[in-house]
Amino acid sequence: MENKASFITDETVESARLIRGMAVLQAELDSLPTYLSVLNEQLSGSLQTVESGVVSVIERINALHAVSQHQLDRISALGENDATQIAREGNAEMVNLLSEALGSIQFQDVVRQRVGHVQAAILELGSHFLALREQILLGEDSGQLPLKERLNRHLEQYVMTDQLKAHLHVAGEELAPDGDLPPIELF
């Protein structure tokens, strides 16, 4: 009898712990989509800031080139001499530097696409957690895709070898050697 009473007491205590645990889990699951949504908004804001900054830099570079070209045209109009030649060389050097700067802006586009993919994954994770919450707390099968299948879908959407490599590395696999191709190839 004493043993049974002790067993019931233990079970009651354990049940209370489990209920408290579920409450904590519920609170965490409730707040996860909010965290993810905030994170997504922050990423969007950062991207917009970068994008407008880049546009401003491109506009300045183009304006600088236009001014430089105009000055060179004026100097050339005075007639061909040593000074004209020096100005022409200086202009060519500046054009080369500006061209390099403009080419570097492509890095921004690469980053934009990478962050865009992360954003999509964050939103998806948010909805997955919501579905998981319903499944755990309400016992309802939400019909959501298993996480493994979601990850596999992301794998199919990657366009950059670096993304593929990182994904496979985390999963304990490696990209086949033929995945490394030269960045510039003429057929």
């Binding site: 080369n96 061209s99 390099e100 700067a101 403009l102 080419g103 570097s104 492509q106 890095f107 586009d109 690469v110 191709l181 960045p183 510039i184 190839e185 003429l186 057929f187």
Partner: peptide, 10 residues
């Protein structure tokens, strides 16, 4: 041809 970004201007 196939060029993978980023490709520098020159």
């Amino acid at each position: 041809g196939w060029l993978v970004k980023p490709v520098l201007g020159p």
